[in-house]
Structure formats: structure tokens, C-alpha cells
Computed example of a mutant assay.
Amino acid sequence: MTRRPFPLAVPPELTAYILDFHWDLSLLHALPLPVVELPLAVFADHLDLPFWAYDGRPFQVTPHQVAADPVTYHAQYERTVAADLRHPLDAVRHPDNRLTILDGIHRLLQAELDGRAVVAARVLPWTDLDRIAVRE
């Protein structure tokens, strides 16, 4: 079986961040990955990328735009404020050693708003991506 392709058109600025296949969050959360503390700065570029939906359209707004205008982007801001930092971010380590968040961008923004210098994260090795892939 092959991996099911990612179901949405991804903007060019996100192609280096969004996996090109559909993956299962419950499979990711079930993996026994160790939790490590990482500098928030490792993920800072994520805060300036349009990961979040607005007005029913995906990939429209960045976390920093939400933080700057919580009235306009109230739904994403409310999710950020409600984010539970007791849960680590989930990321994948690319072959070039770059880290990409798979789950936890609201938690990342919450950590920045709280003034935290480090975040807890679980890091999935690139070679283990098949463990979270949805198959056709």
C-alpha cells in the first residue's frame, strides 16, 4: 500500500514544512517518543508561516498575525490561549536536521506569549514517518 497524498493544495512557503502525505494524529500521539526540552527559537520560523485557517479557508494566517490581532482572528487566538503546555509539541526531524512541528503550533505561540525560552517536544525521526502514514 502507498501513502495517501496530502488532501489540500499547499502554498509554496509551506511545502518545506507540510508533509506530502496524509498522516494520523492518533498514531503520532501513540508513539513512545521521549520528551526533550528545546529552545523555542528552533521553531520560531513556524510563527511567521500561514499554517492556520481563516474564514473557512486553510493556510491564510500566521500565528504572529493572530497574536497581533486577536479580535479579527478570535477563533485561532482562543485556541492559542486554551493551549495546554503540559503537552509537548510533536515534531519531525528532517534528513537535513531541520525540525518541523507536526502538532502543537498553538502551543508554540502560547509558549512565546508566555515568554518561555524553551518548549517540551517529542521528535519523530524522518525514517519513522511510515509509522504515522495513512495508507490507501
Rank of each mutant, 00 (worst) to 15 (best):
W23L: 06
V81G: 06
A91F: 13
P5D: 04
E136K: 02
H94G: 01
G115N: 01
L99Y: 06
F6P: 05
R4P: 00
L33H: 02
H87Q: 12
A16R: 12
D69Q: 13
R135E: 12
A16W: 10
Y54W: 15
L31H: 05
D130V: 01
R131S: 08
E112A: 14
Q110Y: 12
P58E: 00
Y77W: 15
V134F: 08
D128A: 09
A16K: 10
T100N: 15
L89Y: 04
L25D: 04
A68C: 12
T127F: 00
L38M: 11
V119K: 09
L31P: 02
A83C: 02
N97F: 15
A67P: 04
L113W: 12
E13M: 10
P5E: 07
L40Y: 03
P12S: 07
L99E: 07
D20N: 10
N97H: 15
F59K: 01
E13V: 14
Q65I: 06
Q60W: 06
H87W: 14
V71K: 08
A83E: 00
P34M: 06
F6L: 02
V134C: 11
L38K: 11
L99R: 07
V66F: 10
P125D: 06
P125M: 03
D96F: 02
A44R: 11
A133F: 05
Q60D: 03
Q65C: 08
L28V: 02
T72I: 12
L19Q: 05
F51R: 07
D84G: 10
R86T: 12
A120H: 09
R116F: 12
E78G: 07
H64I: 04
P125K: 00
P11R: 04
E37R: 05
R57N: 14
L99F: 02
Q60S: 00
D103G: 05
D103L: 08
H46F: 09
I105T: 06
V81R: 15
